[in-house]
Design a binder for these strands. Structure first.
Lengths: 225, 225
DNA sequence: TAGTAAATGTGATTCAAATCACAATAATAG
DNA sequence: CTATTATTGTGATTTGAATCACATTTACTA
């Protein structure tokens, strides 16, 4: 796909800090690819050869754990993917897969590094994005280990409406098994709690589409268990 | 305490990239303080006003979770503390406390930011350290949620010998309650498993001093249970 | 150094959630 | 459009670990 970064309306905040010349350089060393649902974008254990930027769509980040896959989080565009790997290690520590159709830019790593050294606004913005991601991870981690299933699922639903989809109603493109791996619960438990929520009128489930009906109640469950 | 960064033999890898003039600037805007066991270095919820660098000693990073404290990790010097907060948010997302005597440098945040923009080797090194920290966090998080107690404690002991203390025998300056909050287990369970390990000759416990006796066995437990 | 508080050890009991076992749907490929 | 596979729903059973309840030891502090 031919995309010119200069006219790209889905630029990252960091890329917005670049000068026209730098943007031109980025554009010449960047390749945009469209992925379909389920496609693997980054594969754990392989070498990280490009900086990956999610331009449009949603992906899941997952790690091969000791006993099962762990879905670390769902990420929506715009967002860089795997930056920690790009700079922290040569080998990818986790996999990224599309959960719907999405556009991804692969940026030449040398070009990216050059931009980091020549434009401090750019590098500062990257630093900020990294830090925010890490802080989010801290919170996710704590919630995951301390709350019980109902609370964790409520958290997930809130995160989906507020942050990921920014809508009361959204199409859950992942299976209940994925949800289980995301909130650290078994597939069966997810099913049970989700139907329980539906019975209580907290959510409405129409095949894969979920609608939040009682946000207040969700907040309560998130807080109290 | 008067410390001149130029002659500091406990400099961070990043600070090693600075020019003499820049190091001089750092030195003039840096204050070193010694903390005693249990002292609070960073407090969750307060404003982050300085870049904090752990020059000597060990600290624990902990977060006030929904039901109890979560000890996120034990950090040894040299290491920056709370960098993600410094750049990702104004308010500290977690607390840091000394688990033994330690020296900590408080660096003026404006000076630090200037160094980041003027020296790209420095900022690159900071970026690398941040990324490594995040990758470590990913792994910790997965292990914590998937393994059972024996495995998690084995992991912890291995981490302590290999990375934190770099010795077969070390003085555990934290309580079993802390350990529980670190590996996500109750205080009682930690006690039970630790005494079990001692009975099986895997470790030796002399009050707070732990000695690894059967490393192979620890590896097994870490892997299989 | 005595006296109090903090930390640890250990059994009995309870509980949330995993696992097992299948039935019932939905999705997808040929 | 049918066959096959993937996904979801739900009860019964098991289980790892939390919680409760104390005894015991260790560490501080006055």
């Amino acid at each position: 796909m031919e995309i010119n970064c200069a006219h790209c309306e889905l630029k990252s905040p960091a890329a917005g800090k670049l000068t026209p010349q730098e943007t031109e350089k980025l554009s010449n060393n960047c390749l945009t690819v469209t992925f379909k649902k389920g496609d693997s974008i980054i594969k754990q254990g392989t070498y990280s050869t490009n900086v990956v930027y999610l331009r449009r769509g949603h992906v899941k980040i997952h790690i091969e754990g000791p006993y099962r896959v762990q879905v670390v989080r769902i990420v929506k565009s715009p967002s860089y993917l795997g930056l920690p790997t790009t700079f922290g290690d040569k080998v990818n520590h986790y996999s990224v897969s599309a959960i719907g159709e999405c556009d991804v830019c692969f940026i030449d790593i040398t070009t990216f590094r050059t931009l980091l050294t020549t434009n401090s606004d750019f590098s500062n913005q990257i630093l900020i994005e990294l830090c925010k991601g890490e802080l989010e991870l801290y919170n996710k981690c704590v919630n995951r280990t301390q709350k019980q299933i109902r609370g964790k699922l409520a958290d997930m639903l809130i995160d989906f409406t507020d942050n990921i989809f920014k809508a009361e109603s959204f199409n859950l493109n992942i299976t209940q098994e994925d949800i289980g791996n995301l909130v650290d619960a078994s597939r069966e438990s997810v099913s049970r709690v989700l139907t329980e929520f539906a019975k209580d009128g907290i959510i409405e489930i129409k095949s894969k589409r979920i609608t939040i009906r009682d946000r207040q109640m969700l907040n309560n469950i998130s807080k109290n268990g």
